[in-house]
Design a protein around this nucleic acid. Structure first.
Length: 774
DNA sequence: CAGTGAGCGAGCTTCCGCTTGACTT
């Protein structure tokens, strides 16, 4: 007879806990939520007090029936999902789905996975907190109503398959608005003057770099200053030293881990989470989806021991960090190594690097402050009232800097301040070189995936478990693209004073280049404009923060969840109806000009398949012509000539092997079509002036490549081939592809083997349109 | 590392938050 069944959310956690509890307990996992609103409908009965229509999720049916069976056999079921809103709902859904009864069900919670914590939890069971469940229900229903009423409106007014939601639409808004700021940014320039000095002290020669605090807006003023310095003498007029300290950053949360892994290791947000998951599953780190900066006493003790033995007792400073994050629920610890006495782990190089980062950050968070001495030196100019300034920094005690220093998003990283040479008051300085260089102000930085997560966390939008999926959703919907972009060459002026002579030159620098940054697309910009115009309250940056306050009131029992929803839904739904009724198509249509050949109007707008140009009016007798924009074109920047060029496809290039070659632009970019086959143009090829010779070259190149990928061909049947593809060898037959069973040598397959594989109904080709959900 | 390649229309699409697999042909 089974005595106790414990259910937690994560299987890795289940495994660990089972070890602590002994043979009277078996521990299983719910793998997150087990029930959700019906997916194909609204899933909320609006007329019946917003009654949610829950069902066991399709992928949880099997699991739920297994758990149900175990629950029946058990004397006591312990619901041990996380201690937050979602966790409470998971317990409640388990209670319903497993048909549990009050007399054999207990709800327990723990924040750290140690034997003591678990035993303490078992000794202090409670009941499911139905107010907290109601708060989750309000959250769930609100998100469903917003998402499932706004999205269909977008399908009607803008373009099919689009989506909108409380979280993703704000993420898109941030990116669109940042791009607008950048577009409207006016760069100004000023001259920055730096000087390189040398001096003698105790028979040695030293160098000193200094800067003039003042910037000159006008070139003439900078020149005047430099000219004025030609006959000058320089000497130290003051030396000021003051102590300073630096403190370590708190341990990692999901958001800060994503940011640091992006800055220090160049990982994408999704990649970081995938690697962290692997570390978690192999027991090397604690849970990776958390908003807490808290470390358990167990971890603090280990940190103390580790720091003491590696660096000495004076490096230890145990600290308790408190979260500053809006809406943090802190059901878990911060992300830390399970065993802090292991500075390295086995695994892939990515796992090692991420673990190293986590280990260092955790250890550093419990180390002493670094003690610094900052020095400011003023150097007087005999011919001018102004002074040059040299800054120095000396580390008196390194403290946590011994292991870890957080990096910053700031791109204008100042030159690192180092140690200054030995200096004395009145010390005479020889100028070796003085430069006035024109510097330009920079526009606000575009978001990277990680800096967007940071911003969302600040606004309290999204949760640790959704940061990475949200970022992938807005890219999948093509609201946003992650790209590198080349910068532009910009000229700047530089004046140099050296050896008593002033020289001037104009040099150039590359500016504005971007790497892995998020850019809004035409669709993203248009959808954002639509939502701003009709649903500004939903994409307001404070919307989430405001509803969170109400969720808290529901959790405290001060407010009924469906009253809150009702107050929101009334005006919201009315706005949906009004907009459905009264707003026209929202296509972003713009008149580019008139086609000189036909005299017809040329427009650019968003159509069924995305941004396109249109030749002729929609209302006119004659049907207008349409053509999609190329990937490298945008609605905002396309001009009349470029638009007209798009109507010149498909265009005949000539004949090759007695068949016609045409060039056209398709879904995947420009291509050449020949004898029913397609050949993509390279990025360097311009479809507007591609020649027949180049087209033939492309055709032959592709044939050669196809030849190389052939592993086997068969005399009996030209349709049957064994090919080498992206996922390894496969069989191609009648335009369908088939997997080769594991352990088979593709070289040795006979024609008969291939027929067998192709005819096996298990290998029947899957239907093409099966697009993954999400 | 392969191949993909529309057309003005039938039926489809969609949210957020909690969890991992299964595995591309």
């Amino acid at each position: 007879m089974l005595k106790n069944l414990v259910i937690v959310e994560s299987p890795a956690k289940a495994k660990t806990i089972e070890g602590f509890l002994g043979k009277d307990f078996i521990v299983r996992s719910s793998y997150g939520h087990v029930m959700d609103l019906n997916k194909t409908q609204l899933g909320v009965d609006v007329d019946a007090g917003f009654e949610p229509q829950y069902e066991v999720s399709a992928d949880k049916k099997k699991l739920v029936s297994e758990l149900k069976k175990l629950a029946k056999e058990a004397e006591m079921v312990w619901l041990a999902s996380d201690e937050d809103r979602e966790g409470e709902a998971i317990s409640w859904h388990l209670y319903i789905a497993l048909g549990l009864k009050d007399n054999n069900t207990k709800r327990i919670v723990f924040h750290e996975i140690t034997k003591t914590a678990i035993n303490k939890a078992i000794e202090n069971p409670r009941k499911i907190d139905l107010n907290l469940v109601s708060a989750q229900q309000a959250r769930r229903v609100l998100d469903r109503l917003v998402g499932y009423e706004l999205s269909p409106l977008l399908w009607r007014k803008v373009k099919p398959s689009l989506s909108a939601g409380r979280v993703q639409s704000v993420a898109v808004r941030l990116i669109v608005e940042r791009e607008e700021e950048i577009k409207n940014f006016k760069s100004t320039s000023a001259f920055r003057v730096t000087a390189q000095f040398t001096f003698e002290s105790d028979g040695q020669t030293y160098q000193l770099q200094a800067e003039l605090p003042e910037r000159f807006d006008k070139e003439a003023d900078a020149r005047k200053f430099l000219e004025n310095c030609i006959p000058a003498n320089y000497a130290i007029e003051s030396i000021e030293k003051k102590p300073a300290k630096k403190s370590p950053a708190p341990p990692f949360t999901t958001s800060t881990l994503q940011q640091e892994a992006s800055r220090k290791l160049g990982f994408s947000v999704a990649n970081t989470m995938r690697i962290a998951q692997q570390l978690y599953e192999s027991g090397k780190i604690t849970y990776m989806r958390t908003d807490s900066v808290n470390l358990s006493d167990f971890a603090l003790n280990l940190a103390k021991e580790e720091i003491t033995s590696s660096f000495g007792a004076k490096y230890v400073k145990i600290r308790k960090y408190a979260t500053k994050t809006k809406g943090a629920q802190e059901a878990h610890e911060a992300i830390r190594p399970t065993y802090l006495n292991q500075p390295t782990v086995k695994g892939s190089s990515e796992e090692k690097r991420l673990y190293d980062l986590i280990w260092k950050r955790t250890i550093a968070s419990q180390m002493a402050d670094a003690q610094l001495e900052k020095t400011v030196v003023n150097i007087g100019i005999s011919t001018d009232k102004r002074q040059f300034v040299a800054n120095g920094e000396v580390i008196l005690f390194d403290g946590f800097l011994k292991v870890y220093m957080e990096s910053s998003d700031d791109e204008n990283t100042e030159d690192r301040q180092g140690m200054l040479p030995p200096l004395k008051m009145g010390q005479h300085m020889n100028l070796s070189e003085m430069t006035a260089q024109q510097r330009f102000t920079r526009h606000p930085a575009r978001y990277s995936e990680a800096s967007l997560v940071k911003k969302m966390e600040e606004l309290g939008i999204g949760r640790p478990s959704t940061y990475a999926p949200t970022i992938s959703t807005i890219q999948k919907r093509e609201y946003v693209v992650k790209e590198d972009r080349e910068g532009e060459i910009r000229k700047y002026k530089q004046m140099t004073l050296k050896g008593g002579k002033l020289t001037e030159k104009t040099a150039s620098e590359n500016t504005g280049s971007e790497k892995s940054k998020l850019f809004p697309t035409d669709i993203g910009t248009l959808v954002n404009k639509f939502l701003c115009q009709y649903f500004d309250s939903i994409i307001d940056f404070n919307f989430t923060a405001n509803v969170e306050k109400e969720f808290d009131e529901i959790a405290d029992g001060r407010k009924k969840w469906n009253h809150m929803i009702s107050e929101f839904y009334g005006p919201f739904h009315k706005k949906i109806e009004d907009t459905t009724e009264n707003a026209g198509k929202f296509s972003g249509e713009k008149l580019l000009g008139v086609d000189p050949k036909t005299g017809k109007n040329v427009f650019v707008k968003v159509g069924r398949f995305g941004p396109m140009v249109q030749l002729g009016d929609t209302e006119s007798e004659e049907k207008p012509r349409f053509a999609g924009l190329r990937k490298d074109q945008t609605m905002e920047t396309i001009d009349l000539d470029e638009a007209l060029a798009l109507f010149s496809f498909p265009r005949t290039l000539g004949t090759f092997e007695e068949k016609e070659m045409t060039v056209a632009i398709g879904r995947f970019g420009p291509y050449v079509k020949h004898n029913g086959q397609f050949f993509s143009l390279l990025k360097t090829d311009d479809p507007a002036d591609i020649t027949a010779e180049r087209a033939i070259e492309l055709i032959e190149q592709k044939r050669e490549k196809a030849q190389q990928s052939i592993i086997q061909e068969f005399e009996q049947d030209a349709e049957m081939k064994v090919l080498n593809g992206r996922y390894g060898p496969y069989i191609s037959f009648n335009k369908s592809n088939y997997k080769i069973p594991k352990g088979t040598d593709p070289q040795k397959l006979t024609y008969e083997d291939c027929i067998k594989i192709v005819e096996n109904p298990d290998n029947a080709p899957k239907k093409r349109f099966v697009r993954k959900k999400k």
